[in-house]
């Protein structure tokens, strides 16, 4: 039987220029890593075509232990309150351990 650990997957959709801020936050929250993919779409900031730097969104994934979720969400809410537009959602995941 495989051993699966319950954790939280936090996904953030934001403009490419916010990447450094997001990386700094997840490092402060002691996440072991993160994954970034380029994304296209549209929202309140207009269409994000992905063709120019200014038009490029990222989809930022980070998996953290359940007890670390609150601290991470507090920091992300702080950013959103300062006007940084981003979409944040949380999913339950099970992570395979060796």
């Amino acid at each position: 039987m495989h051993e699966l650990v319950p954790e939280k997957l936090v996904t953030i959709i934001a403009n490419d220029v916010f990447e450094d801020k997001l990386v700094a936050i997840v490092r402060r929250q002691k996440a072991s890593g993160y994954t970034i993919v380029r994304a296209r779409g549209a929202g309140s900031s207009g269409e994000q075509s992905g063709m120019l730097d200014i038009d490029t969104n990222i989809k930022f994934h980070v998996i953290i232990p359940v007890q670390g979720l609150s601290g991470l969400l507090d920091e992300l809410r702080g950013l959103k309150r300062r006007g940084y537009n981003m979409t944040v959602f949380v999913s339950d995941v099970s992570v395979l351990v060796s």
Partner: peptide
């Protein structure tokens, strides 16, 4: 645009 997006997030990029 990237500089303003970071420094003046309240401004509407569109």
């Amino acid at each position: 645009p990237p500089a303003m997006r970071l420094a003046v997030p309240e401004a509407n990029p569109s």
